[in-house]
Design a binder for these strands. Structure first.
Lengths: 157, 157
DNA sequence: CCTAAAATTTTTAAGCTTGAAACATATTCC
DNA sequence: GGAATATGTTTCAAGCTTAAAAATTTTAGG
């Protein structure tokens, strides 16, 4: 029987949601730890740096600092530090925005683009191999469930 | 391997697994951010502290530092700092282990036990409300999929 | 034009996180 | 016993992360 078809009776709604969350968190942490380790060992970089490069790779024209922190769901100050170090590594540049002297656009350098393209390819292989356990059918069901799940704000108890 | 499985091209398969991972990561980060914020505002505490208390709550006899870092999947040095601050708050105590002068057992204080019990109850409500979108049936399927998914070590590209 | 409010980014202080090195103690094996 | 090895923990330096405050610039209202 396909895992997706199996059904389990639930006694307590809250407890079941909690179990889902704990399981989600555990998987997510396991995979994150593995990816961090790989990025460190194979490429001498970190997940936050990788995330910033990934966001910039999708936006050829570059992104403002504030846009970066929005899509990455991290604070402004956080992005400041990471971009600083990426500039030091020669992977991105910061360009003043004409017409708004407050803002800065961050863009990949040629080298940044090449290096990220390579890392992204390898990274995709890591992720696939980590999830190798999942059958194609289960993967489809899982993706749909996750994709359709909208996280609400927690309600004050 | 059957025909159906074979017919999915590796490239698409990898892309699909990557999409699952990105979606999983996004949900997990959203929920974590919300929980961190709530813990900070409602209880003046942090997720790492909460995690340590949760682990200790399950083990009435207390846990060695190394056991803590194992179940929490974080480094030894990390636990040292968090426990230090929890001791400062009077929520846990560190007790030398008779028979092994290297080791330390960490245990909840009475106050730690009471405060965690309260926080855990409220926390469960937050999680349930955040996942309110999910129907009971979908929740069952999702839990089974997650629970049966074994994360493998990434294979070198 | 001037001033208040909003927007963009950086700085700061505190805490979290890691891997590696250091340190202390236990255990194993010759 | 003594040496080597293993185990348990802390320390350290570097980087990540946040919320809040500060600094700069733009926009809006009068």
């Amino acid at each position: 029987m396909n895992v997706a078809e199996k059904s389990v009776p639930v006694r307590d709604r809250n407890k079941q949601r909690l179990r889902i969350w704990l399981r989600l968190l555990k998987i997510s942490r396991q995979m994150e730890a593995e990816i961090r380790e790989r990025l460190r060992v194979e490429f001498g970089t970190t997940l936050p740096r990788f995330d910033v490069l990934a966001a910039l790779y999708r936006e050829r024209e570059g992104m403002k600092m504030s846009a970066l922190s929005t899509v990455l769901m991290v604070s402004n100050g956080n992005v400041t530090g990471i971009v600083e170090r990426l500039v030091g590594d020669g992977l991105v540049v910061r360009v003043p925005v004409s017409g708004d002297r407050r803002a800065m656009v961050v863009r990949l350098t040629e080298r940044g683009r090449e290096e990220f393209a390579h890392m992204a390819k390898v990274h995709e292989g890591w992720v696939a191999s980590m999830l190798d356990d999942l059958s194609d059918d289960d993967a489809d069901v899982l993706f749909d469930l996750l994709d359709n799940t909208q996280i609400k704000e927690a309600t004050a108890e």
